[in-house]
Amino acid sequence: MHELAVAQALVEQVEAVIRQHQAARASLIRVRIGPLAGVVPELLASAFPLAAADSRMEHASLELVDAPIKVRCLTCGAETEAAMNRLICGDCGDWHTQVISGDELLLESVELETAPSLAPNS
């Protein structure tokens, strides 16, 4: 449900990047999402066109990059992959771990069209 709010935040951020670089529009938006961020990639993908309607990124493709869950064990030091609801060490089984990847919700990069377009978006 909250993916629309996330999509709106994404559009605001990309809009700021377009402004900063005085670009015409965004053509590709790359977002990294870990399962522990609590945002469902499929829902974000379907909410994005609604949030981006009539903006300078309405024709941009949204690329969602998955971030696998990895934990570092604070007891044995191993770095292992983990399941979303079992963030324990894959080597020694201890639960004293730290998530080092998998909770990202990151606007990674944006590709911008810098040249003035032949078909102005007015």
Partner: peptide
């Protein structure tokens, strides 16, 4: 490695690496 990536002419890739909910 995600930040600088060659793209097509007339386009530019900008690395942002900012939390999506930065405004919140």
């Amino acid at each position: 490695h995600l930040a600088f990536k060659p793209v097509a002419k007339g386009a530019t890739a900008v690395s942002v690496l900012k939390g999506l909910l930065a405004k919140n």
